[in-house]
Design a binder for these strands. Structure first.
Lengths: 349, 349
DNA sequence: CGTCCCTTGTGAAACGTTTTATTACCCTAT
DNA sequence: ATAGGGTAATAAAACGTTTCACAAGGGACG
């Protein structure tokens, strides 16, 4: 019971039991160099006496901490939360502790975090790199012998493997779906073009249009939006443009929700009045009305994969920098039907 | 650039500069005991040479790590994500690093995490205790001199202060609002009765009914639901009960969304056909249709407050265990109008 | 009986900081 | 010239592990 005293250390146990600290250390870690009987004796006493292992001391000696640093853009984004979930499960199972940071696409913040992690001697870093991250920043870490795994956003020349979905393909598919529904004027909203996901999803959209004989340059392309609020803003812009689109392909589900709610406020019924698609298939978007047509990109799977890749690197096994992309799957639901009789207003309430 | 060599240490810098390691250590930490000139010289060289501070060594020496452990039920829950957000902002500003864990209301998982944190010599712990946590488990940590701050869920007898919203008052208010709208049969859905928030929100509902001369025992009370999916299940149960309610007060927004989507599937229009209220005022719920009537309980504020409380404890200042509850504020929107002409079906599509 | 190997156990040197007590030095006032 | 006082710098002892090299004992085998 909470004796106000100093914490117990190996030496204390050793003295009490009449053995050396070396023996105690070895025993606690199940080294075969110590006899079964002694091991039991040590463990039992340590347990009873409430011994608490000091990882700082161990880290100092061994130069490794059993900690993994995770930096993502924003854990509040349900999509990242899901990725994180996959990550965490796999890592805690292996006894790793997670240090976390939301860098919010702020380079300085990200750098500060990385520095701190290095000071803590983390065993590895899992990063969704902030937009504008220089490949060299990552490369430097890797060349110090600290494994880095990127998630969601790739960074050419960083020397680190990246686990992510096939953004190009996903957006190509869903745009193609819109085209097949009969849409001819299809906007794209959102996505930071400075990130690989923003870039790739935009390319998919362009290519799908081109392949269908539609000219992407005549379509509407509104970059940057990432959140629900920004999606709303974009929707206003779209509706008031000279030639409003009949469909809008959004960078992610959040933006799509924003677009739909703005449309509603403008008297346009999302779905019949304006086809809207999302990306990510966040939890719950299939249950709304209209149920969101979107792309499931296997967030949990991406998290798990990244964790596995990290663990493999920690074991010293070399990993290929060329990780196969996780394949997305289309979720056709209700929010993107064929074009209606043009933008038909309906009275709310 | 990445010399494959050993990491630089204080001693190396000292040798190069012809001073002692003590001087270097002091200089880097801006001690007034070292002359301005030397300090600059040291810092400049350390910077140029790419020195990386080793926190394990420092932790070992000083018995503190600058790390704070945070254990919550589930970071994927947007509400907790918001609390976490408040926490993080306040903590990183003070140079703290966050160790995180989702305990998922699994006691064993929570305990493992706590143990690991203690081994890492975290400076403090911020915990939303798993349901079923024994006050003693927390008390033991506190009595070791490690500050603990609880968030969202209180735990009497734990010896740790708790920052949380006034759940009783919030649910009382919103139930009262439903009553004022003319509802007489008001169900409550969700909330683990083993947690303070579940218990308090349920009490608020009961008391509001009693104060209005309604008998809580005749109303419908479905505990446990916490997620959208569980909310859907509950909705089916409600609608098919002998005397279906005209309003349902949900434990949180997630459950409310579930109830509304299920209602819709059953041909009932959420709002006019069935009044639904949420709790938490998660981002975006005001933009949906119908806009959710709910209670904003200041998640970010709770997170910030908890962080402040922790920081104060870290400075050694004693804090009162009696923290004033964060006052919730009602968000009256569209989802809880007066009762319609009883459950009126409407045709979807 | 001596030699060798195997099993257990140990002493002591790291690991890279922080901090306390002490020294070295220079300046000023007597 | 000497004492006193302030400023800068330092030596060395922690902090609690891990691990390397070695020692002690005990069979087995020649």
């Amino acid at each position: 019971m909470g004796n106000g005293n100093r914490r117990l250390k190996l030496e204390d146990i050793a003295r009490t039991l009449g053995v050396s600290t070396a023996t105690v250390s070895l025993a606690l870690r199940d080294s075969p160099a110590v006899a079964e009987k002694t091991r039991l004796r040590v463990k039992e006493y340590a347990d009873k006496a409430g011994y608490i292992y000091d990882r700082s001391a161990a880290s100092l000696r061994t130069s490794q901490s059993n900690m993994i640093g995770v930096a993502v853009h924003d854990i509040m984004n349900p999509y990242f939360a899901e990725v994180f979930h996959g990550l965490e499960e796999a890592l805690v199972e292996k006894g790793k502790t997670i240090l976390i940071c939301n860098h919010k696409d702020d380079l300085q913040r990200q750098q500060r975090f990385i520095d701190t992690m290095l000071q803590h001697r983390v065993d590895g870093l899992i990063i969704c790199p902030s937009i504008g991250t220089k490949p060299n920043n990552i490369k430097r870490i890797v060349s110090q012998g600290i494994p880095v795994t990127l998630v969601c956003r790739d960074l050419a020349g960083s020397g680190a493997p990246c686990v992510r979905g096939d953004d190009y393909n996903g957006s190509y598919q869903i745009t193609k779906h819109l085209i097949e529904q009969g849409h001819k004027r299809i906007a794209m909203v959102g996505g930071r073009r400075g990130s690989s996901s923003g870039k790739d999803r935009n390319s998919g959209w362009r290519q799908a249009l081109l392949d269908a004989g539609l000219n992407p340059d005549e379509q509407i392309d509104i970059p940057e939006a990432m959140t629900q609020k920004e999606g709303q803003g974009a929707a206003f812009e779209l509706v008031h443009s000279k030639q409003p689109p009949t469909a809008v392909m959004c960078f992610n589900d959040l933006v799509a929700l924003g677009v739909m709610s703005a449309a509603r406020r403008l008297g346009i019924q999302p779905g019949p009045g304006l086809a809207v698609t999302g990306y990510d298939d966040m939890e719950g978007v299939g249950n709304r009305s209209p149920a969101l047509t979107t792309v499931s990109n296997g967030a949990t799977e991406i998290g798990e994969l990244a964790a596995q890749l990290m663990l493999r690197q920690l074991k010293g096994k070399p990993v290929s920098l060329d990780v196969p992309l996780v394949q997305p799957v289309l979720r056709i639901r209700e929010s993107a039907p064929p074009p209606g009789k043009t933008l038909k207003a309906f009275s709310p309430a």
